[in-house]
C-alpha cells in the first residue's frame, strides 16, 4: 500500500501532507491520555512489531502479495491516537531508511495507513464489540473485523486521492474495482494476523490491551486492570 513518489501530483501530496501533519499533531496531544509508565514501552514494542509485520508479504494469488498494515492492531493494543503515532513512526523509518514509500508521499502514506487504517479499523472494532459478548475473548474477534474493514477503506481513500490528483490517465472505475477487490483479499490476511496477535496478547497480558479495558475476563468475573506481577515489581 506504500505510495511511491510520482503517483499523485504536488497539490494532492501537499494536501495529504497537511492532513497528516494535523492528524499527527492532534495525536501527539491525545496520546498522552493513553500513555503511562505501563503502556509506553508496550506502545514502542507495537510500533517495532508493525514494522516487522509490514516486511512479511503473504501471497494473495495471481502474482500479488499483501502485508500487514497494522492500523487496527495498533489501535486495539495501545489506543487509536497512540496507534496513529506508531504507524507514523513506522512509515517515517520506511520512507527515510528503506526507500519504501516516497518522501513527498509520506503525508499520503500517513493519511492512508496511519489515519484511515487506524481510525476506520478502531471504529469497526468498537462497533463489533457492541454486538459481541461483553468479555475479553471478544477482543481478538472484534480486532480482526476492524482489520478486515481497514484495508479496503484505505484502498478506497487512495483511489479517491488518485481521482483528485493521479498523474497518469487511467480509467478510475478500473482502478477502484481492482483496488477494492485485491485489498479485500489482503484485508482477510490482515484480519487473520491481527486476530492471532491480539489473541496472543490477550491470553498473556490482557491488562496491557487498550481495547480490553472495562471488559470482564472470559472466565473469572473479576479483572484487576492494575494488577502487576510481583516479579516485575521487584526486578
Amino acid at each position: 500500500m506504500h505510495v511511491p513518489d510520482g503517483f499523485l501530483d504536488a497539490p494532492t501530496s501537499i494536501a495529504t501532507g497537511l492532513v497528516a501533519a494535523a492528524g499527527v499533531g492532534i495525536a501527539l496531544r491525545k496520546a498522552r491520555a493513553e500513555l503511562d509508565d505501563r503502556t509506553a514501552p508496550m506502545a514502542g514494542l507495537v510500533a517495532a512489531f508493525v514494522f516487522a509485520g509490514q516486511m512479511m508479504n503473504f501471497p494473495v494469488g495471481a502474482g500479488t502479495s499483501g502485508h500487514l498494515l497494522g492500523g487496527a492492531l495498533a489501535a486495539v493494543l495501545v489506543g487509536p491516537w497512540t496507534g496513529a503515532l506508531c504507524l507514523s513512526v513506522v512509515l517515517m523509518v520506511q520512507a527515510l531508511f528503506m526507500a519504501d514509500g516516497g518522501l513527498t508521499a509520506l503525508g499520503t502514506n500517513i493519511t492512508l495507513m496511519g489515519l484511515v487504517g487506524v481510525f476506520v479499523g478502531y471504529a469497526a472494532f468498537r462497533l463489533a464489540l457492541l454486538v459481541l459478548p461483553r468479555n475479553v475473548s471478544s477482543v481478538p474477534v472484534a480486532g480482526a473485523i476492524g482489520a478486515l474493514v481497514s484495508v479496503p477503506a484505505a484502498a478506497a481513500v487512495f483511489t479517491a486521492l488518485f481521482a483528485a490528483g493521479g498523474t497518469a490517465d487511467v480509467p478510475l472505475g478500473t482502478v477502484l474495482t481492482a483496488m477494492l477487490g485485491w485489498h479485500t483479499v489482503i484485508g482477510a490476511g490482515e484480519a487473520a494476523v491481527t486476530g492471532l496477535v491480539i489473541g496472543a496478547v490477550v491470553a498473556s497480558r490482557p491488562d496491557l490491551v487498550y481495547g480490553a479495558r472495562g471488559l470482564a475476563a472470559a472466565k473469572a468475573p473479576l479483572v484487576l486492570p492494575d494488577a502487576e506481577p510481583v516479579r516485575g515489581g521487584l526486578a
Partner: peptide
Amino acid sequence: ASGHPDGLEYVAERTGFIDSAQ
C-alpha cells in the same frame, strides 16, 4: 516473504500507472 508486488503495485501495473512512480 512473498516477492510479488503488493496490492497497490499490482493494480498500478495492471491498470497502467506504475510508470508514474519515481
